[in-house]
Design a protein around this nucleic acid. Structure first.
Lengths: 257, 257
DNA sequence: CGAAGTGTTGAAGGGTTTCAAGCATAGTGG
DNA sequence: CCACTATGCTTGAAACCCTTCAACACTTCG
C-alpha cells in the first residue's frame, strides 16, 4: 500500500483528501501465490489492479506457442490501467512471486479522477513513466545484442527498485527464472543462460539463490550501452559532447560528423 | 487541428469550454519540412508537441551507430507528452514528411489539466492507448519473425489510420523508406526489402509510389499473427476457443492443452 | 526416493546481418 | 537537354548470432 501511495505522491502533489480517496478505493485486497493468472487476455476489462507487494508481469501468448513479457510489474505498479480504456484486455497478467493486489472498479477510478484532478494527473504521470520504460525496452529489443539486452534489463531493474528501497550495496532479489528472462528479452532460455555466464565470467555480476549482485556498475552500464545510469553511479551529468540546437535542422543521424 | 480534437473527444467527453481551452493552447503552430529534427535526445524538456498534420517519429541513436524508432507519429498524435514528467528528453523526434506541429508549454498543459479534469482524463486515455500500441510492438519485436513483424506493422498502421480517415478501399499512403521501416522493426534495410518482396510475391500487398495497397486483408492478418483485426475485416468477434475463467488459476502458458 | 522444475552444456541448423555492387528514379546545374 | 549527383531500391554471397534439439546435473519438495 505504502509503495503505491509513495509512487503517486512522487508523480503529483496530492493532498490528504486525495490520499484518503486512494486508500479507500484500495480497500479491496487479494493475496495470490506465485505463478497465478490475475487477468487473462481477451477477457472483459472491468477492474484495475494495483500491485501492492510482490512481482508480476504482463504477457502475451503467440499462436505458435511462444510467450512475450512486455512488462515486469514491481510493488507499487499499476498492472492494467488500460482497463479504463479498452473493453477487452490486450494482454494477460500473472504473478511471478506471491503477491498482494488491490482490485479497483473502473467506475471508481473514473469517479475519483473526476473529483480529484491531481489524482488524474498522478495516474497520467505514471502512465507516461511506463511509456518511457517501454520505449527503452523497445530500443533494446530492436537494436541490441543479447548481451546488451540482458545488461540493460538488469540496470533497468536496479533503477526501478532503487526508487523504493532495496539495491542496498548493489544487489537485489531477482525472482525470475531464465525462461522468464528470455520471455522479457525475446531470447531463448538457453541463450539467456549463456549470456549470464559470460557476464559472470567478465566479473560484472554474480547470481546466488535468486539474488543478483552487480560487481561492476560501470562495466555493466557500458555493456547496456544507452540510458542506463543507476542512481548510485550518477557520474557527471550531461556528459554528452556538443551543444544541442533547436529544430529546423537535419535529423541527427544524417548530420555530418 | 481537427484530428487532434477528434482524438481527444474520442477518449473522453469534452465540453465546449475544454475544446476552446485546447484550441487556445494550440495557437502556436510551426511548419516543418520532411526529415527535420523537432526535439533532440537529452535536451531539456520545456514544451509538448502535437502533430497536427504529417508523419513523424520518435527515435533513439545507439552508440554503435544504429537507430531505433520506438514510435511512428500520425496526425493527431502527441509527440512527447512525457515532457510533463522528465527534465530531459529520453528520445528525439523528427519529421518524416512535411508537418504541422502545435507547440505547448508544459506549464500551460499542467494548468489546463488542473482546471479541466476531463482534459487530464483524455490525455491519460491517449497515453494508455499509446501504451497498448507499444506493448504490441514489443511483442512483435521480441517474438516474431521479420515477415510477421512487417505484416503486423502494416496492419497496425491501417488500423490507426482508419480511425481518422483514409484506408479507403484498402490502400493508404506510406511515406516511409525501407531504411525507416527497418528502424521501426529492428531489421536491416536489406532484409526489409526481401520481406516486402516476399509479401508481394504472395499477392498480399502491392507497393506503388509511396502508397501501400493491401490485396488480402485476411492473409496479411494471418501472417501478422496476433492482435491484428482491421476495422474492415471485423470477422467473428471473440473467435478464441474456450471460456476464460477468473484468477486463482495456473498461468495460461502452463495449462494442460 | 522419485518427480518436477531449473540450470547447464554441446552440436547442428537457420534466420538475419553485413558487405558490396548494380539499378532506378528524381532533382540540379551547365 | 543532358550529364551528374543523390537517394532509395534490389540482388548475391559470406558470416554470424541465436535458436532448436537433446541430454545431463542440480536443487527442491512431497
Amino acid at each position: 500500500m505504502q509503495k503505491f501511495l509513495n509512487r503517486l505522491r512522487a508523480m503529483s502533489r496530492l493532498g490528504n483528501s486525495e490520499m484518503d480517496a486512494v486508500e479507500g478505493a484500495c480497500r479491496d485486497v487479494i493475496r495470490l501465490e506465485a505463478d497465478t493468472d490475475l487477468v487473462r487476455e481477451g477477457e472483459p476489462a472491468e477492474h484495475v489492479h494495483v500491485l501492492l507487494e510482490g512481482w508480476a508481469c504482463r504477457y502475451v501468448l503467440l499462436p505458435e506457442g511462444g510467450r512475450q513479457i512486455p512488462a515486469l510489474l514491481l510493488p507499487g505498479d499499476v498492472a492494467d490501467l488500460d482497463a479504463l480504456l479498452a473493453q477487452r484486455r490486450p494482454y494477460a497478467v500473472a504473478t511471478l512471486t506471491a503477491c498482494e493486489v488491490a482490485v479497483l472498479s473502473c467506475q471508481a477510478v473514473h469517479a475519483a479522477m473526476a473529483q480529484y484532478p491531481a489524482l488524474g494527473a498522478a495516474l497520467l504521470m505514471g502512465a507516461l513513466h511506463e511509456n518511457v520504460i517501454m520505449t527503452h525496452r523497445n530500443v533494446s529489443l530492436g537494436r541490441q545484442s543479447a548481451r546488451e539486452r540482458v545488461a540493460h534489463l538488469l540496470c533497468e531493474l536496479a533503477n526501478r527498485l532503487s526508487d523504493d528501497d532495496a539495491t542496498t550495496k548493489g544487489a537485489y532479489a531477482l525472482p525470475l527464472t531464465q525462461a522468464e528472462l528470455g520471455d522479457v528479452l525475446g531470447l531463448s532460455t538457453v541463450h539467456v543462460n549463456r549470456v549470464l555466464q559470460s557476464l559472470r565470467a567478465d566479473a560484472l555480476i554474480r547470481v546466488a539463490n535468486r539474488r543478483l549482485e552487480v560487481l561492476d556498475w560501470n562495466g555493466l552500464g557500458q555493456v547496456a550501452g544507452f540510458h542506463c545510469r543507476p542512481a548510485h553511479a550518477d557520474a557527471s551529468r550531461s556528459s554528452r559532447s556538443g551543444a544541442w540546437r533547436t529544430y529546423a535542422q537535419q535529423p541527427m543521424h544524417q548530420r555530418p560528423a
